[in-house]
C-alpha cells in the first residue's frame, strides 16, 4: 500500500474500507491518515473500546446497512471489519 492510498479515498478501495477510513478520522481525528492500513486493527490505531464501537456503528450508518454487532472484536483488522459491513448489505 502506498502512502498516497492512506491519505484519502483511494481508487479501487472498497466502499466499506473508505467508509471506515472516514469514520476513523471523524471519531479519532488524532489518528494520522497514513497509519490507516487494511491489515491494522482499530486498537492498533489507538482507538479505545468506545471509539471502536462508534466507528463501526457510524460506518454501518453511512453504508445504510445493519451494524454487524456480533462481528466486532478488539483485534479485528480493517479488512475484516470491511468484510463484515459488506456481508451486512
Amino acid at each position: 500500500m502506498t502512502e498516497n492510498r492512506n491519505v484519502a479515498a483511494v481508487d479501487g478501495e472498497s466502499a466499506e474500507l473508505a467508509a471506515l477510513r472516514r469514520c476513523i478520522l471523524a471519531v479519532v481525528p488524532a489518528v494520522p491518515p497514513e497509519h490507516i492500513h487494511p491489515d491494522r486493527s482499530l486498537a492498533q490505531l489507538g482507538c479505545n473500546s468506545i471509539d471502536r464501537a462508534e466507528i463501526l456503528v457510524m460506518a454501518a450508518g453511512e453504508l445504510a446497512v445493519a451494524t454487524p454487532v456480533d462481528g466486532i472484536h478488539e483485534d479485528s483488522d480493517l479488512d475484516s471489519l470491511a468484510a463484515l459491513l459488506r456481508e451486512s448489505r
Binding site: 471502536r52 456503528v57 451494524t67 472484536h73
Partner: peptide, 29 residues
C-alpha cells in the same frame, strides 16, 4: 438478538465489551 453480556449462572457473568458498546450505540440511534 446478540450475546454481548449475560449471566449463564448465579456466579458467572460473561461480557464482550466491544459487542456491548456497539449494541448500545446502535440501539440508541
Amino acid at each position: 438478538e446478540t450475546f454481548d453480556t449475560a449471566r449463564p449462572g448465579p456466579q458467572l457473568e460473561v461480557a464482550d465489551v466491544d459487542r456491548s458498546l456497539a449494541a448500545y450505540l446502535d440501539c440508541l440511534k
